[in-house]
Nucleic acid binder design. Structure first.
Lengths: 348, 348
DNA sequence: AGCCGCACAGCAAGCGCTTTCTACGCAAGA
DNA sequence: TCTTGCGTAGAAAGCGCTTGCTGTGCGGCT
């Protein structure tokens, strides 16, 4: 027995149409009438029925944000920035949108299901964050979905994700390749010649690009890479710990370990320390992302800072139509090398 | 020009009613008919109109998760666990719900606005995580809102938040007081008598409870507390850094620093180190929560582990009606003291 | 004085789905 | 053979809102 528009109308002695117009503020209503309506709304504690409104108006105030792992600050920071711009509540009037964060857990199926769910809700916009899975059929399915969404008027923005061709989706891509290369060049510059690499999960764009950057740096320096120097794992600390032990087992003469991201790097540090190796005297370590805790590691982590919050904010604004998309609908966001205590001259 | 139920019905040569029933699977439909309908759905790429469906059925598949700060893993971990149970996609059939994470940024207004938005969407359930703001009028407003929600059939669960009386909301409360007490007792047991405390923002239940636990331990040990030993800040690293410098300035003879949470503790460690103090030889440090990175600090952090993921999962299940609420609608979740390298015998 | 146009307000037709109630056909029981 | 009843499908009445179009009253114009 909830209160409806009609109840409010009756109480304010006006027609439902008028109440609707007062609430939406998109049609002239005499001040006195508005006043009366607003009072009735208040007295009856009326709350608009979202679905009904969305149905009639054929629009919705939902904005979806897809992330791979909400427990990872990498995504949390971006999501936070995006949501702040979406305005959730607090944004300028008229833009009261419900920004919803959907956690795909990195699973292609869930990603697709969430997209369908958002499509079903006729979401106003969708922001996809983080690397994409490189499985061909899945990529095609996602692309098809995105195309459908844009066709239906949903704005689609990719944040920290490679462009999706033929989808009209705006892409803010992180320069993972460039960042990876800078990082490894830095280590090579210090004199390292035997570098281990702990990569993320295979079949992920982020993983591949960072690794490619690393290899490009090696190649440019004329260093021939030993296949034993690369190990794949997940993007978490645990994985870094285990992978490092594995690397050490394979080749104890490594003088540097480059990790897929900061969490992995932290795990690597732990493993090295437990193996009795000092950082950076015995082995240098480098991460990626520059998450807040990275500066607190001991020694603090050499890494590549990605402007997560800035990129997220921009993606949010574009999704809201408050900022022009970049020319060509694609922009590359660069990382910045942060040289800190965990990298140093190799032991000899 | 989107495809509607009627289009599918026409194509499958059945009535819209039948299509609806096939899609919802809540009514007997002959296998051959179902087959035909499903094929039509597929061929037309039909996607159900969420708002329309929600309107007609007077139910929704939205579940809201309110968090104070999505960029903080404390909330990220809980949100992730909750969402996994909500099923989002991937949950068992029939329960395909859209779990949405709403970031309040700790602001009472936004919290309220989000609740209204969820109420407007006729959310199936709402989970509020983390400490509440202790502002009286605001607390009353939230309580009123929660009451409205439960009355409207929305299940409300509080996770890591104190019970809200008279709201029929289920509460899984963290024993912040007990955890705080254990932690400080541990330090006292090591011989500390001069302990600094970096508290969270005032007017927050979590802040107050942890501090009360700390003070209870001091009182029980007959230690008289110096008002200079407590500093308030935010729940982030930066705040811990600054507060520690302040504490050191006020009383350089402190032998231990207890922080409101792990991030703050990390900031404290950084400040101590920069001040030339060794941990734990010169000053012991303790955190709270036991977030993943805490074990990687050097030395690793003594803290109180809160079963964030477990509590979140349980909250999620209760919200979905898949688990019985605890007796009395209230359960207390205890923390576990994790003694690690950052705490030791005080310098003399 | 007569007419026009403007500023508001109401009517009513949907929006696309769910669900109750009714209709139909057929097999089984009387 | 006639009635029951079950298994299925359809007709149609909304769900609560938005919005194009249709009034209505009044001030200003000629």
């Amino acid at each position: 027995m909830t209160v409806t528009l009609a109840d409010v109308a009756a109480r304010a002695q006006v027609s439902p149409a008028t109440v609707s117009r007062v609430l939406n503020g998109n049609y002239p209503v005499a001040a006195s009438t508005r006043e009366r309506v607003l009072r009735a709304v208040d007295e009856l504690d009326y709350v608009l029925n979202g679905p009904a409104s969305a149905l009639a108006a054929a629009t919705s105030d939902l904005v979806g944000i897809l992330v791979n792992d909400i427990a990872d600050p990498f995504f949390g920071i971006m999501a936070s920035a995006i949501q702040a711009e979406i305005g959730g509540p607090g944004g300028r009037a008229g833009g009261e949108r419900l920004a919803v964060v959907c956690n795909t857990g990195g699973s292609p199926e869930r990603e697709l299901t969430y997209l369908t769910l958002l499509q079903r809700q006729r979401a106003a916009a969708v922001v996809l964050t983080g690397g994409a899975v490189e499985d061909q059929p899945h990529a095609a399915a996602v692309a098809a979905k995105l195309r459908k969404l844009t066709e239906a008027g949903t704005r689609v923005v990719l944040c920290g994700r490679p462009p999706a061709p033929d989808t009209r989706a705006v892409a803010l891509t992180f320069d993972n390749r460039g960042g990876g290369r800078q990082l490894t060049e830095h280590l090579i510059g210090l004199g390292h010649r035997r570098l281990g690499y702990i990569a993320g999960p295979e079949e992920r764009t982020t993983t591949r690009h960072r690794l490619e950057g690393h290899r490009a740096a090696l190649a440019a320096a004329g260093i021939e890479e030993d296949p034993r120097w690369t190990v794949h794992g997940r993007y978490d600390r645990r994985s870094g710990y285990e992978a490092t032990l594995e690397l050490l087992r394979r080749d104890p003469s490594l003088t540097a370990v480059v990790a897929a991201n900061d969490s992995v790097a932290l795990g690597a540090c732990a493993a090295l320390r437990e193996s009795g190796l000092r950082i950076p005297e015995d082995v240098s370590v480098a991460g990626f992302d520059d998450l807040p805790f990275s500066i607190d590691a001991v020694p603090s982590l050499t890494t590549v800072r990605l402007p997560l919050a800035e990129a997220g904010a921009r993606a949010g604004r574009i999704a809201m139509g408050r900022e022009e998309p970049p020319p060509g609908e694609i922009a590359t966001v660069r990382g910045e090398l942060m040289v800190r205590g965990s990298s140093g001259v190799p032991r000899r």
